[in-house]
Design a protein around this nucleic acid. Structure first.
Lengths: 202, 202
DNA sequence: GTAGCGTGTTGAGCCTGACTCAACGAAGGC
DNA sequence: GCCTTCGTTGAGTCAGGCTCAACACGCTAC
């Protein structure tokens, strides 16, 4: 590729590399990503990538954090809504993200869970954040959450991820509104089974 | 290691390598497993491993299949039990396996989901098998399962995996009986939310 | 015994891809 | 116009996956 090499600022170069890395991951998966390929596509030397990311793993973690951060931003809860509406809005935003970036999402959910230790941590942390948000909607008094509720929240997040991936795989055959309704139902069922107060239906 | 090298039959050698591979995976993770290390521990040349498993990935897949097969065998449903009892028995067996081989289990659930394509398939297939078993308990007439029920079953399996991993991570603080009770509750909640007949409580 | 044969096994070496390092060169300040 | 800064280079090292032609062990036949 005879692209003319250009000198970029640290931030620009870093952003460019992450952008390219995301494409590569979308096209294949995390563990198939090659640093050489990224460098080639960026039109830089092989060595430069390691000036920004000391290790291939660091690079992958940066990619995962970038994608996860984007997901978390776009699904940030609207505190002004009552709990149930908030959950529904969160699910809608989640599905927006997922349908827009389905390749990246699947790569993240299915690829970052395993793989290197660092990736697992990012995945873990993201799932935790999502679970916390759900619990925050309940714990109005800011009380301690017991194990059962915590398990319910985490389990529900996992259920949602799995269902959404399955839904994508069936070409979204089920209407999206029905899917959201069901996911809301499952949330209520999981949480109330775990002893959550029923007034979360506010 | 001055162990005397011995000539083994194909099946013996293969079994030995898988056994060693499982140890390595337990000790670290799938993607950190090194074929050289396995060969060393087995006291064989580096080349021989590739005589049995043409590719590192093939070896990892064989390991995952071995572990997944073991899990499926040990949790095989007892057809003579009524649905609800069968589910409970399955969960008990599942927890037996998980507590016995927690390292391997976590490596499988958290490591095989991502990583190479082949590993993902094994993980996928195992989750599907577990979901099918749950649906089999319902579909007495052998009718078609609609998307909602299929999603519920798959989602529930994912929920269970996540909850169990979390439970292990909290040093099994919650009593095991309570965990089983809750998991049964969640199963009923998830399935009936998806429109399963209520007479699955037989 | 020894000649042959099937097959488990070897070990040197290739090759890809992650990673290093000393030196180069394009902006900006003086 | 020189100097300092720092993004950048590219040749090279190293680890680890993978190959291949030859070897050696156990066996049967003569």
């Amino acid at each position: 590729m005879g692209e003319q090499r250009k000198r970029l600022s640290r931030d620009e170069r870093r952003a460019q590399l992450i952008e390219i890395g995301r494409h590569q991951v979308e096209a294949s998966s995390f563990d198939e990503l090659s640093t050489d390929a990224v460098a080639d596509e960026a039109g830089i030397s092989r060595g430069l990538l390691f000036h920004y990311f000391p290790t291939r793993r660091d690079f992958l973690v940066a990619l995962a954090e970038d994608a996860a951060g984007e997901l978390l931003d776009l699904t940030a809860p609207d505190e002004s809504l009552p709990p149930l509406e908030r959950l529904r809005a969160g699910l809608e935003a989640y599905l927006d993200y997922v349908t827009t970036r389905s390749d990246l999402y699947v790569a993240l959910v299915r690829g970052a869970a395993g793989g290197s230790t660092g990736l697992q941590d990012v995945f873990e942390a993201t799932r935790s954040r999502l679970a916390e948000r759900i619990l925050d909607g309940l714990a109005l008094g800011g009380g301690e959450v017991d194990d059962a509720l915590a398990f319910a929240a985490r389990g529900y997040v996992a259920l949602t991820e799995e269902v959404v991936v399955s839904w994508l795989r069936t070409d979204q055959r089920m209407p999206r509104e029905e899917l959201v309704d069901r996911l809301v139902q499952w949330a209520l069922a999981a949480l109330s089974s775990a002893g959550a107060p029923d007034d979360l239906l506010t």
